[in-house]
Design a protein around this nucleic acid. Structure first.
Lengths: 201, 201
DNA sequence: GAATCTATAGACCGGTCGGTCTAGTGTCAA
DNA sequence: TTGACACTAGACCGACCGGTCTATAGATTC
C-alpha cells in the first residue's frame, strides 16, 4: 500500500474532480489546472492515467456517473417499492442533493449533453447510452407494474425529461420550487396511469 | 443603456451569432473570434456595441431569445386554441426546429443555465426571469381553462421541465423519439387534468 | 543490486482566449 | 470646410488553455 489511507487513488481523485466540475460548470467551463488543484495531482499524472487528456477524463467521469445512477436505480427498483413511491423517493433525494450543493451541482450528464457537438462523438455516445440505460430501467419497472410497453416507454422518457428540466430550472432559480412542482404534477400522472391499469385489469 | 428604436444591423448580427452559438455549444464553448467571423464583424465593433464584452453580448442574446419565446407563446395563447392543442403545436414546432438544425441547435437558455455559476449573477437572473415568464404565461393559460392556480403552476413548471429535458435527450440521441414520447405522455396528463376540471364543473 | 516499470512531479510550449488600443471612415450639423 | 460623433477595422497584449517533455522516486523482478 503505497498511498496514504485517507486519500483515494489518484485516478479516482481525478475522476471525482471532473465529475464535480461537470456538475457545476460543464466541460468547457473548467480548466485543467483548476481540476488538478482540486484533485491534488500534478499534470503529468493526468496524462499517465488518461493519455487522451481532458476528453478521456470527462468520458471516464461520465461513465462513472452513469454506473452510479443506474445501480442506484436498480437498487430502488429491486426494493420492490411501487413506481410512484420509488419516483417520489428519487425526487426527494434530488432535492436533498440540490440543497446540499447549494444549487450549484446538477446532473453530470446534462451540461455536457448540451455543450457537445456532433464532433464530440464519443462523449455524446456515452451520454446517449446513459440516458437510454436509465430510460430502459424505468420502462421495465413500469411494465412490471402493468403498464403497456409503448406507454411505459413514453412515460419513462417523460420522467427523465421532467427530472432534467426540473433540475435546470431549480438551479437557475436557486429554489426547490421548480423541482417540487414538477414532481407533484408528474407523480399525479403516473398515479392516474397506474390506476387506469388497475381498473382495466 | 436605452437605445432608440432603430438598431444597427451589425448589432443584430452579433446577437444572432451569439444566439446561434448558445444553442449549439453554450457560452464557454464559443470563442470570440469564431463569433466575429460568423457575424462578419471585426473585434472593435463588438466592444463598441457591447462594452461589457462577451458577457454583455450573451445577456443581450438571452434577452432577445426570451422576448422571442414569450411573444410566440402569447400569440399561441391569444389564438384561443385549447391548451392541449396549443402545447401539441408547440411541441411539433420544436420537432421541426430540431430536424432543421440537424439536432445541433437546442434551447438558447438551457446550456447557459447549466454552465452558469453563482458568480454569473446577471446571466442567471436573466435566465431565471425568462423561465419564470414562460411558466407564468402557461400557468395563466391553464387557469383560464379552469385549472386551479396551484395545480396550474405545478403543471406549467412540468411542461417547461419536460420540454427542456426532451430537447436535451433528443439532441444527444440524434433522434426525435425522446421529444415525441415526452410530448405524448405529457399531453395525456394535461388532457386528463382538463377533463377532470370539466367533470367537476 | 541492476534493470525495469509504474507513478509522480512540474517546467515548459505554442496556440488561443477575451480584451484593449489606436487609426481610420462615413455622416451630419454648424 | 470643419469638427464632432458613431461606427468600423484590426493589430496587439498578457493570461491562460490543453498538452508534451524530461526527471525522478518507489516498487518489483531477475
Amino acid at each position: 500500500m503505497t498511498r496514504s489511507a485517507e486519500l483515494p487513488a489518484t485516478r479516482d481523485r481525478l475522476i471525482a474532480a471532473m465529475s464535480d466540475a461537470l456538475q457545476r460548470r460543464g466541460y468547457h467551463g473548467v480548466g485543467l489546472s483548476e481540476l488538478l488543484v482540486e484533485a491534488q495531482a500534478p499534470k503529468g499524472v493526468l496524462y499517465h492515467h488518461f493519455p487522451g487528456g481532458k476528453t478521456e477524463l470527462a468520458i471516464a467521469a461520465i461513465q462513472s456517473a452513469v454506473s452510479r445512477l443506474t445501480s442506484a436505480l436498480d437498487r430502488l427498483i429491486a426494493s420492490g417499492a411501487d413506481p410512484v413511491a420509488a419516483l417520489s423517493a428519487w425526487m426527494a433525494g434530488a432535492e436533498k442533493q440540490l440543497e446540499k450543493g447549494r444549487f450549484e451541482k446538477g446532473c453530470p450528464l446534462a451540461t455536457v449533453a448540451l455543450e457537445s457537438t456532433a464532433e464530440d462523438e464519443t462523449i455524446r455516445g456515452e451520454i446517449a447510452a446513459g440516458f437510454a440505460a436509465i430510460r430502459d430501467r424505468l420502462s421495465s419497472a413500469l411494465v412490471a407494474s402493468g403498464v403497456v410497453p409503448a406507454k411505459a416507454r413514453a412515460l419513462s422518457t417523460l420522467i427523465v425529461s421532467a427530472y432534467e428540466g426540473a433540475l435546470m430550472q431549480a438551479r437557475v432559480a436557486g429554489s426547490l420550487a421548480p423541482m417540487t412542482e414538477t414532481a407533484s404534477a408528474l407523480l399525479q400522472l403516473i398515479q392516474s396511469e397506474l390506476d387506469a391499469v388497475k381498473g382495466i385489469r
